[in-house]
Design a protein around this nucleic acid. Structure first.
Lengths: 218, 218
DNA sequence: TATAAATAGATTGTCGACAATTAGACAAAA
DNA sequence: TTTTGTCTAATTGTCGACAATCTATTTATA
């Protein structure tokens, strides 16, 4: 019984649309979002939007109280650094251990494609796209575990991390550094024969790319 | 803006009922559960049951595929030990650090009450109730952080851990050991003045009570 | 007989309508 | 002026009905 990736139901599509609006900056932190408005915009019923918004609430992207309005979650940097990143680290290394053996040429091609697109994004200084690609990379690792529960838990935290990076203003110098980081990681994931090496690289990568400069002494 | 604990909406009540059925063993692993049946049993509409079941699916207690039936999740011991327990450890120690300062006499009374009920449960060899009390203890710690996202993530994994323990047949000797473990932890949480000590005790407690005997050499 | 198509029943997905609750505007009273 | 109460509009919560899909059974066909 392998994982079910067919998230094509209407509620998932709607959730995807709302996510897109958030990640493209059309919806900002704390901004109100109403069921009726979304329903009319997308031409679907409120019921489906309701379910989609419930999904997003449980992924931590929206927050709501009974009978009161629903808003885009406000992200706390402290929570991201102290709680979400360490958890992400654990989930992804676990997923890597479970999925590493199943990787083939196809997986490698996907890694290379992501890296290629990253280079383009850097060239055009397209920060949001770069973040999107970073998420895609890690998603590929998590998905390869084919473990539903692992995927679900990962999704329940990664979107808030993504939001954190989106709202963080990036310094252009950092982007170059990130590209190199990702190049190194992907190189090891593709060519490295050893699981242990891959795990250690992933761990180092997450720590390096997530802990902000402020925390780096010297 | 503090945490919203008023989970009194209908969907939460329904979800609570279903959870109860699962934790009381009325619903077993892999057993099918239909929206209509639950709706009729509880005298509510399918819509509300649907939302409740979506909640439980995202907490990992139910699993469903589009247009196919929904079933109680099957728990994998490996997943619990290698993924869920370490994550739980991290979340709870984080919550403890954030909430420790706010504890007062009231909190201590709650700890004592839980311990008292644990002794009773042990006396009657009521294993399910003991598990329930254990969850209550940890819930108290997590809730005291008053951080919505921390609470939500915790809930998204703790129920599967609970299910794991429920399905695990306990040896009576283990129960006595667990009581002592909990007594020691609660004693330190109440009387210990130091956060560091509390954190270290919690960590040790979670490891001791969660890693099965099989893994304990000598 | 074995395989494939058609059908029927059960279950989930989607919808629009109505009920309950909230927040804000406005008015009345201290 | 400040407070309190009442209304109204906006929004969320709940519901029953209908549509789409799946599963198993039956029927048709080679």
């Amino acid at each position: 019984m392998n994982a079910n990736f067919s998230k094509n139901s209407l509620k998932h599509q709607i959730a995807q649309q709302i996510k897109k609006s958030i990640f493209e900056g059309k919806l900002e932190q704390g901004e109100k979002i109403t069921e009726l408005q979304v329903a009319q915009d997308l031409g679907v019923s409120r019921t489906s939007v309701r379910e989609a918004m419930l999904l997003l609430e449980l992924e931590g992207l929206l927050i709501s109280e009974p009978y009161k309005d629903t808003r885009v979650t406000t992200i706390s940097q402290e929570e991201v650094l102290e709680l979400l990143i360490p958890m992400r680290l654990h989930i992804e290394t676990y997923a890597l251990k479970k999925g590493f053996d199943t990787w083939g040429d196809e997986t490698n091609e996907q890694f290379k494609l992501i890296l290629e697109n990253m280079r383009k994004a850097i060239h055009y200084e397209d920060y949001p796209t770069f973040i999107d690609l970073d998420i895609q990379l890690h998603e590929l690792i998590v998905m390869s575990s084919k473990l539903d529960n692992v995927i679900r838990i990962w999704e329940s935290i990664v979107h808030r991390i993504r939001l954190h990076f989106l709202y963080q203003n990036s310094k252009s110098g950092t982007l170059e550094k990130w590209l190199v980081d990702h190049e190194e990681l992907i190189d090891i994931l593709i060519n490295g024969k050893s699981l242990e090496l891959a795990v250690e690289s992933l761990r180092k990568h997450i720590i390096d790319t997530n802990i902000p400069d402020v925390y780096l002494l010297d």
